[in-house]
Simulated assay, not measured.
Amino acid sequence: MSKKRAVKLTILTGIILIFGAISVLGVQKMTEPTEKEKQITFLKEHESELTEYIKNRNPKSKISKVDYEWNSFKVEDSGAFTQKLYTLKINLYDSNKNEIDGGVITIIPDDINMPSEIKELSTNNFDRGIGEKNNG
């Protein structure tokens, strides 16, 4: 084999290896979950805690099921100089599977990007709406 051919073969092998490494890294990066997917996974892991909070906050509503609209998940802030938080639309159902109401649950995690615990929760007061319906 001539020297020229050996150099060309070495360069070609190097180029193939570089493209191979780039494609492997690209595929690996594509299969890694996005930040939003990690945040939603965190909330799904705490779904029972969220449900208990909603039910305990609204005992008159007799909520038996909370349906979370995961595609509505957003990271927001409530105004200037406030910390970012998660919002998620919810639908509530009674034991007869009748829809009671819908609204939003707000979650403040310890770290907005890589949460490990929930610091604070808030949601609509659905019991108040029931009282207004019964009195009005």
Rank of each mutant, 00 (worst) to 15 (best):
S116N: 15
N56P: 00
L17Y: 02
Y86K: 01
K65C: 03
I100F: 03
M1G: 12
F126G: 02
E45R: 04
N98M: 05
I16V: 14
S95R: 14
S61L: 14
N135S: 15
G102N: 15
R5W: 12
A6G: 00
F19P: 01
F19A: 08
L88F: 03
K8Y: 14
P59T: 06
N124F: 14
G103Y: 06
T82R: 14
T31K: 15
T106W: 15
K55R: 12
R128W: 04
S78Y: 10
G14I: 03
F126V: 11
M30N: 12
Q83N: 11
T34R: 09
K97V: 07
P109T: 12
K29H: 12
K55Y: 04
F42K: 09
I15K: 02
K4E: 12
T10S: 10
K74Y: 08
T41A: 15
K60Y: 12
Y93A: 05
V27W: 10
R5L: 15
G79A: 02
N125L: 08
G102T: 08
A6I: 12
G103A: 09
L85R: 11
E37K: 13
A6K: 12
V27F: 12
I105R: 02
K60R: 13
T82K: 14
S23R: 09
H46N: 14
S2N: 13
E52T: 15
I11T: 05
T10R: 11
V66Y: 04
T123C: 15
I108Q: 08
I90W: 07
I63Y: 02
E69D: 15
G103S: 06
I63G: 01
L25Q: 09
D77P: 00
S78F: 09
L50A: 05
T10N: 05
N71M: 10
